[in-house]
Amino acid sequence: MKTSSGFKSTYLLGGDLEINRMGYGAMRITGPQIWGMPENPQHSIDVLQRAVELGVNFIDTADQYGPFTSEQLIAEALHPYQEHIVVGTKGGLVRFGPWADINNDASPQHLQDALDGSLRRLKLEQIALYQLHRIDPKVPAEISFDFLAKAQQQGKIRHLGLSEVSVDDIKLAQQHFKVASVQNRYSVLDRQWKPVLEYCKSQGIAFIPWFPIGGGMVQLEGQLKDIANRKQVTMHQLALAWLLHHADNILLIPGTSSVAHLEENIKAAGIALTAEDMKELDGLTKAQ
């Protein structure tokens, strides 16, 4: 079904879970610098509940957001879950402190502990989408993939996905299980992983971009802002709208700890972009 804004509003994740393409990323509901509990957990609960009220039915998180606190808050806010709510989480990283103080660990033992912990914290018997947060350079990818495939066979996981991977990584994983999603950095200003997006589209795999605006490219950001001003929307809203129009297999997970910002993000799904708008936005990266 196409929306009035010209793009398909829903996606069949894994071929059997219909979700709205405008989802919610739950990294920012933790404490400052993705560490610990927020000062006022109720604010995070309010954001999660408001997201569902606004039609969001896909929520993305990870065990290392906090660590653990994002999953705990999701369960507190939304459990028992409405039947149509899909919560996806990730394992394979270990957080030792704020921001980037994290290490890879995709060993079977860690993934076992991570998966069981996520099931417990989210109060689920099966995780709808479980993504390997990173391939661990210390562990052969096949070993991690074999563990995940067995966990899926045991019924703990419905669909499996990957994060920060190349096309070759996806092809290797497909030898072990059906890949339902891939989560890589991608935006109107940063299309390094376009070959991965195109491969996912050809394979019926959902593509979940993080960092949906990009950054660090002042000239391009200025051009994006000029277009946004002309459309009378924010630069962030325009970047989200471009992604929705760009490919029907893209699922958005903008994150925020503010109800007002959440509502602003959701409005991006109502922004109509013409063929001329898309051509202008598509051309931004040519200056890189």
Rank of each mutant, 00 (worst) to 15 (best):
G15T: 05
S258H: 06
D101W: 04
Q237M: 13
S202C: 04
R95V: 05
D248L: 00
D226S: 15
L119W: 05
H236Y: 09
P32H: 06
L115Y: 04
I85Y: 00
Q49K: 10
L262H: 02
R230P: 01
T30M: 09
L129N: 06
Q49V: 02
I157W: 07
A206C: 12
Q153I: 05
F147E: 12
I102L: 13
Y24L: 13
L17N: 01
R230A: 15
L124R: 08
M278S: 08
T274H: 11
L132H: 07
R134H: 05
K171P: 13
P32L: 12
I135E: 14
N104M: 09
R50S: 01
G91Q: 02
V233Y: 11
L12K: 13
Q82D: 05
L273P: 04
P108Q: 03
E39R: 01
T274D: 13
D190K: 00
G155Q: 07
L124W: 04
L243I: 04
D101G: 01
A114N: 14
G283H: 00
K90H: 02
A128K: 14
F68D: 12
A241T: 08
S4Q: 07
A173K: 02
Q192E: 15
I34D: 13
S4D: 11
L122W: 04
F211A: 15
P80C: 13
Q223K: 15
Q152E: 14
D169Y: 11
R121Y: 08
K2A: 06
F7S: 09
R120W: 08
L78M: 09
P41I: 10
S257G: 09
D146N: 15
Q109F: 11
F147T: 12
Q174T: 13
G23C: 03
R230Y: 13
Y81M: 09
P137G: 11
A51E: 04
K150T: 11
S202R: 00
L73N: 00
S187R: 09
G216S: 06
G222I: 08
R230K: 14
A241C: 06
E264G: 10
P140S: 07
G92K: 01
V182G: 01
W210Y: 14
A269K: 06
S70W: 02
L111C: 06
Q49G: 02
E263F: 00
L111T: 03
D60V: 06
P212C: 10
Q237N: 11
G117Y: 05
S118K: 00
G25P: 02
K171T: 15
I271L: 10
E76F: 01
I143Q: 10
I253Q: 01
G161W: 00
Q49L: 01
I74Y: 03
G214K: 03
M278W: 11
D60T: 05
L48T: 06
G214E: 06
S44R: 01
A260N: 11
V47L: 07
V182A: 01
W242R: 00
Y199P: 08
G36K: 02
A149S: 15
V52F: 03
G214H: 02
Q288F: 13
D63M: 05
H110A: 08
L243S: 08
I127E: 09
L244Y: 07
G88I: 03
E276F: 02
D60W: 02
F96M: 14
R230S: 15
